[in-house]
């Protein structure tokens, strides 16, 4: 076990964990931040997506030792007032079904818009293809991203 200083959602935390423990399990099992979900453990489904210095990253394969100097953002810290345009848009379009993958979907979408405020369909596909939704909410996710980006999406 080792101690790691991490910055999560703008808070400095010191966590004790094995160096190879993926960030996902540090968040969930050490810090009890359970909004980030486990889906596959192999960076195949995107349910565990968080931001590392603003970049959408799969936390299930990212060892804690690799992120000690990084700024980490999870779904719990996605917005200060809980009013990120995507969170509003997700509600307007009634996107979630079971909701389990949606934290990861939102984190991927937020990173996309931060980098590309007016993404076209291809850019959305490229950014979101790593996030599986078994309930099949893709059409609404696409519409919600476009809406949040101010392009208007057909609901």
């Amino acid at each position: 076990m080792a101690k790691f200083k991490v910055n999560i959602n703008n808070r400095e935390e010191v966590v004790e964990a094995e160096a190879d423990m993926p960030l996902l399990w540090v968040l969930r099992d050490v810090l009890s931040l359970t909004g980030t979900k486990f889906g596959c453990g192999k960076a195949l489904c995107g349910a565990c997506t968080v931001h590392i210095n603003g970049v959408a990253t799969r936390s299930c394969v990212l060892p804690i030792s690799a992120v000690t100097d990084a700024k980490i953002t999870t779904i719990e810290g996605m917005s200060h007032g809980g009013d990120h345009p995507l969170q509003e848009s997700w509600k307007k379009h009634n996107v979630p079904q079971c909701g389990y993958c949606q934290a990861g979907q939102l984190m991927s979408a937020a990173a996309l818009l931060a980098q590309n405020p007016k993404p076209d369909d291809d850019a959305i596909d490229a950014a979101m293809n790593g996030n599986i939704c078994r309930c099949g909410t893709y059409q609404r996710i696409r519409a919600a991203i476009k809406d949040a980006a101010g392009q208007g999406g057909t609901p």
Binding site: R28, S32, L33, T34, G35, T36, K37, F38, T74, I75, E76, M78, G82, L86, Q87, W90, K91, K92, N94, V95, P96, G99, Y100, Q102, A103, L106
Partner: peptide
């Protein structure tokens, strides 16, 4: 009529609780 799901806010803010989320 159309209604927004009652759990959407919880879901989009990482507050919805699933099977492995209780501590």
């Amino acid at each position: 009529k159309d209604h927004i799901g009652i759990d959407v806010d919880a879901v989009t803010h990482g507050q919805a609780r699933y099977g492995a989320d209780l501590r």
